[in-house]
């Protein structure tokens, strides 16, 4: 099975659930194919490719579609049903990079002090402490746990620097979910997800989505905080070479701080998720 065939089996976000007024439509791309997203009634969005209607489901603030008649089920985010949380779709940012690179960058903490200076990291607090990574065979997802990192402003709701705990989860090749310390509610974890719509192997639309405990920040503040972070990454992502993600070991020399990335690449390779990968397409 080619990387492209493998990628066809998944669900991808193509719009925010409340995007477009009734009667409106927009043109976009998914896996090198032109698609049209339209709203025929108030309830739901429709997606068409070359006149053929595709399956659509609404979840986590977005409309998801797939080319497959027998897709893998869309991964679960149980926190999405906790009604006390604020659900924040952050819009879309286009990036000229492999969809896999967008996910991998999200999983990296070592760059925080240098790219997200004063927000997610700062010098001299640059050390990535030992953390654990595993591929959970029962659900076939990558997990990174026990991550601790000093953050000057961990979220919009944070007042001053704190040591933040992170858990990363990769439930699909082009999605990543982060659970991190919630400053105003330390017994709970905020959820920040990155949903990637692969336009082609070297271009993607990225849809960040959050499920937070924060009763005070305005919606615009929450969205801009996340956009600020992501667009700080964008210029770095667009300069990574090669544009596609190398997933065979041997192309790059990882360090211990890259454990999550190593597991992610290994997991992609094992699944044959080569769409957007350097080796095969």
């Amino acid at each position: 099975m080619s990387g492209y065939d493998h990628a066809l089996k998944y669900w991808y976000p193509v719009a925010m659930a409340d995007e477009l007024d009734t009667g409106q439509s927009k043109h976009t791309k998914l896996l090198n194919t032109d698609i049209v997203v339209s709203r025929s009634n108030d309830e739901r969005l429709d997606v068409n490719a070359a006149g053929k209607s595709l399956a659509v489901q609404h979840a986590y603030g977005h409309a998801w579609t797939t080319f497959s008649d027998t897709p893998y089920p869309l991964f679960a985010i149980p926190e999405s049903s906790e009604q006390e949380r604020r659900f924040v779709p952050c819009g879309v940012v286009r990036v000229s990079c492999s969809p896999l690179r967008a996910v991998e960058n999200f999983l990296d903490i070592a760059h925080f002090p240098f790219v997200h200076t004063g927000v997610l990291g700062s010098e001299p607090h640059t050390e990535v402490y030992k953390y654990d990574v595993k591929i959970d065979e029962t659900v076939d997802e990558v997990f990174a746990t026990n991550i601790k990192f000093f953050q000057p402003q961990a979220s919009k709701s944070a007042e001053g620097g704190i040591e933040t705990e992170y858990i990363y989860r990769v439930p699909a090749p082009m999605a990543a979910v982060l659970y991190k310390t919630c400053p105003p509610k330390p017994e709970c974890l905020d959820v920040i997800a990155l949903f990637v719509q692969p336009l082609d192997e070297e271009t993607c639309d990225v849809w960040p989505w959050m499920a937070l405990y924060d009763d005070t920040s305005s919606m615009a503040d929450l969205i801009q905080f996340q956009q600020l972070i992501f667009v700080q990454d964008r210029s770095i992502l667009e300069n990574q070479m090669p544009r596609k993600l190398p997933i065979d070991p041997g192309h790059e020399i990882p360090t211990k701080a890259d454990l999550t990335s190593i597991a992610y690449r290994r997991w992609l390779k094992k699944r044959g998720a080569y769409y957007g990968a350097f080796e095969r397409s």
Binding site: G91, M219, A220
Partner: peptide, 10 residues
Amino acid sequence: IAVDFHPGQE
């Protein structure tokens, strides 16, 4: 004052 330019078109 943060204005939700994107996606909110505020």
